Amino acid sequence: MSIQKECADHLRQTYRHLTNEKLGSGHAHEIVAAFFGYGSAAALRTELHYQLDELNRADILIPNLALMDQRVQQLQGLPAKLPEVNDLASQLCDFLRAQGHFSGTVWHTHDVEDYINSDFIQNDPMMIEDDLSSEIATTNAYFDELYIDEVALDIGQDALVALISGSLNGDTDQDRAFHGDSIAFTTVMTFQRVAGRVAYEKPELETSGAVDMSKYYDDEEA
């Protein structure tokens, strides 16, 4: 049995258990397809390169909650007591874990850009700071604040790419000559696609940066 059908059957069984009513097979398959990032169940069934059987190789799963919302609005004849999309996605994630299809981290979010900043990077800022060690060494500052200005996503055929810009800020050591206390950086974070349109490997990061002295030059000119 395919993972697509397993998930659809699970949604139907869970709905019947909760409400003693029926969720149609077609509806369940469409909801599952949207969860995995496809506009229709047929599109998921015809996926050739990133089949769901490879889910166990993925490190990160990002259910497409926005597409699930859209499909639920489009589908005709859905039962009135159908759970909210967030609950449906949670049911599917729990099922995939329980069946051993996926053991990585779930990013349960409607805003991937914000999640990358607030939950992923800020929980482990050293993934960026380590790549700025040579720039840090040229300054007289102690750095402790990683600030993200922007996260821009590019969803490609084979990878999800996040282009991140921001600054690493610190406090100057007054006993040393001033050489800057802010480093402007850009990070390219690449998530290689593994299964479906929502399951990826751990990201690869490439960070470049330079000490930002522009505000001090501006002050001198003023």
Rank of each mutant, 00 (worst) to 15 (best):
L88T: 09
T109D: 00
V85P: 01
M68K: 04
I121A: 08
A80R: 12
A98W: 05
L75P: 01
A98G: 13
Q76C: 00
F102N: 07
D87Y: 02
W107I: 02
S90V: 06
I116T: 08
V106I: 15
S90E: 09
N56R: 15
R97S: 08
W107H: 00
N64E: 15
Q91E: 06
T105R: 13
R71E: 11
A66F: 01
L75K: 06
R71K: 15
Q122S: 13
Q99R: 15
R97T: 05
L78K: 14
G77I: 12
L61I: 12
H108K: 11
S103Q: 13
L96T: 12
H108G: 01
V72M: 11
G77Y: 10
L88M: 13
F102V: 10
L88I: 14
P63G: 08
K81R: 14
L96E: 04
P83W: 00
V72Q: 12
E84A: 11
I116K: 01
W107P: 00
D59I: 05
D94Y: 09
V85M: 02
R71N: 10
L65I: 15
M68Y: 05
A98K: 14
L92E: 05
V72W: 00
E84Q: 06
Q70G: 12
A80C: 02
Q73I: 04
P63F: 03
F120G: 07
L82E: 04
D119Q: 14
H110R: 15
L67I: 14
G104H: 08
L96I: 12
A89C: 03
W107T: 04
E84M: 01
Q122F: 13
T109V: 09
G77H: 12
P83R: 09
Q70H: 09
P83H: 07
G77R: 12
Q99E: 09
I62H: 02
W107K: 01
W107Q: 01
I116G: 00
Q70N: 11
F102L: 05
Q122D: 15
E113A: 14
N117S: 13
S90W: 01
G104W: 05
S118P: 02
D87G: 07
I60F: 09
N117L: 02
D111C: 05
E113Y: 00
D114Y: 00
Q122H: 14
F102K: 11
D119W: 05
D94G: 03
Q91W: 15
Y115D: 01
P63L: 08
P63T: 11
P79I: 07
E54V: 11
Q73N: 14
L82G: 12
G104L: 10
E54Y: 13
N56Q: 08
I116D: 01
S90P: 00
G100T: 06
L65Y: 03
A89F: 00
E113D: 11
W107G: 00
Q73G: 11
H110T: 14
G100Y: 06
L82F: 08
F102H: 11
I121M: 07
L55F: 09
L55E: 07
Q70M: 05
D53K: 15
Y115Q: 01
Q91Y: 12
P79H: 08
L82K: 13
L96K: 10
D69P: 03
M68H: 07
Q70K: 15
V106E: 02
T105F: 06
I60S: 03
D59M: 05
N117F: 06
D87F: 04
R97A: 05
W107L: 05
